[in-house]
Amino acid sequence: MAYLITCAGSKVEKGTFQTSNLNSLSFNDILGPARIELLNLVPKIKLDWERSLPAWKLYSGNRSKLYPQIREENWKKNCVEIKVLSALFGWIKHTDLLPYYDLRMSDKILDNKFVYKYWQNKNVLAQFIDENDIDLLSTNYRKAIHGNSNPVAIIPNVNFTDYGVQKGKWLNKELNNLAC
């Protein structure tokens, strides 16, 4: 079982950086070609792989809602499987090293279509979802998977009203209960 979450529009640009590269991202054997193609469709994005952070740290910017709600030790548990749906990279793991970038599923790319439409047309994201996964995704991120806002996995039995903060608190509580 994995927790499925979205990337965050608010990213940090400071930290203890590490070096990484596009080929080291999770699921690259399947998503690699789509990632390269998308990078070519968004020429404004320049990636500095010498300044990479774990995804969970990168997405913990000052306006981020979900990520700061989760305690650092929960992010670092080795038995936790969190898949993050990134507008630029598709599925990644929360521990993957990423450089700063600015792209949302609702942005338009060179061919004038939304990023979520790009991923939807590639038809590669759904294969990474298992029936027991927990869906904490937002609408445009679900659209990238199957073209509509319907859940892609199990939805927690909680009425989230402030989606980011409440989803983050809920996920932190879940991760607190995991003994590795």
Rank of each mutant, 00 (worst) to 15 (best):
I155N: 07
I30D: 07
Y100C: 00
P54H: 11
A8R: 06
Q69R: 04
N112H: 09
T19V: 11
V80M: 13
N28M: 02
P33S: 02
K167A: 03
H94G: 03
K76P: 01
K77W: 08
L136P: 06
E72K: 12
D130N: 15
F160Y: 06
V124P: 01
A126R: 12
T6K: 12
A8F: 02
D130I: 09
E73D: 11
E37I: 02
G15S: 10
K113R: 15
Q127E: 14
N159T: 10
K93Y: 09
V124E: 09
F27N: 06
L41R: 08
G9M: 07
I154H: 10
E72H: 06
A126I: 08
L136G: 14
E37K: 12
D162E: 08
N150W: 06
G90E: 06
G164Q: 00
Q166D: 04
L38S: 01
V84S: 05
N172H: 01
T161I: 10
I82N: 05
L85E: 05
K44R: 15
N121D: 15
K44G: 02
N78R: 06
L41K: 03
R51G: 01
F89V: 08
F17P: 05
K11Y: 04
G168A: 02
L175N: 06
S26D: 08
H94N: 07
A153D: 05
I82Q: 07
R63P: 01
I154D: 04
S24I: 01
L136Q: 14
A144P: 01
W91E: 09
N123V: 03
I5H: 03
V158L: 05
E37H: 05
V158C: 05
P68E: 11
P99S: 10
R35A: 07
L58A: 01
I45A: 02
S149Q: 13
N176M: 13
L171N: 01
I92D: 11
T16G: 06
D96Y: 11
M105D: 04
R63M: 14
R51A: 12
M1Q: 11
V152N: 03
L85G: 05
G147E: 08
A8G: 07
L98P: 00
M105Q: 07
K122Q: 15
V115F: 01
N150S: 15
N157Y: 07
K113H: 12
G61C: 01
I92Q: 06
E131S: 11
N23I: 09
K65G: 02
S64D: 12
A179W: 08
I134L: 15
K108G: 10
K113G: 07
